[in-house]
């Protein structure tokens, strides 16, 4: 990667999937890859599914994400589960707190099963110490399953929704 060339190459979802496959079949226990601001780290623990680290936006919107946005997105960690359906993605809680499926008790749920969502869709609200966080989906697809109920306490990283992405 030349220093005067600011344009960065980002791995696509397909490419990360491919890397994961090759990695999981290999003898290696760890793989680190850094390209500019994008970092990928694959690790194998015994009997654990491979863990992958990536900037979420890059993975979900390899084409649409503006460069500036991707470049400033810090690296986050997520677990890729060997799901029965590779297009099913889990949206996990960003914080510990109370899960609300609707903005107020009298209103409709933000989303329901079968609903199409975009990265901008507000899917739920999580409250902790009177801090109300409206959670955006950050990916496109269709809500396949709602995993928690209104008013339920959720942990950090707890799966909230299953979303069917368009592959």
């Amino acid at each position: 990667m030349s220093s005067e060339n600011k344009e960065q190459y980002f791995l696509s979802y397909e490419e990360i999937k491919e890397l994961l496959e090759v990695f999981s079949q290999s003898e290696a226990s760890e793989l680190k890859l850094a390209m500019g601001d994008q970092k990928l780290k694959l690790m194998k623990a015994s009997n654990q599914p491979a863990s992958v680290v990536y900037p979420t936006e890059t993975l979900q919107q390899p084409v649409a994400a503006p460069l500036s946005q991707v470049a400033t997105t810090p690296v986050v960690e997520a677990n890729v589960q060997p799901a029965e359906d590779p297009n099913l993605v889990e949206i996990k809680s960003e914080m510990v707190g109370t899960f609300y499926s609707k903005p107020t008790p009298d209103e409709e749920d933000y989303v329901h099963v079968g609903m199409n969502i975009t990265p901008e869709t507000t899917i739920c609200m999580i409250e902790a110490m009177k801090l109300f966080n409206e959670v955006k989906s950050e990916l496109s697809g269709q809500i396949a399953e709602v995993l928690v109920s209104n008013g339920q306490m959720v942990e950090y990283g707890q799966p909230l929704f299953k979303v069917r992405t368009n592959g």
């Binding site: 997105t73 960003e94 109300f132 966080n133 950050e138």
Partner: peptide, 12 residues
């Protein structure tokens, strides 16, 4: 009364 609302991604 105080009410704090945020719009955030995982880390930002």
């Amino acid at each position: 009364g105080i009410l704090t609302e945020i719009s955030a991604e995982l880390t930002q």
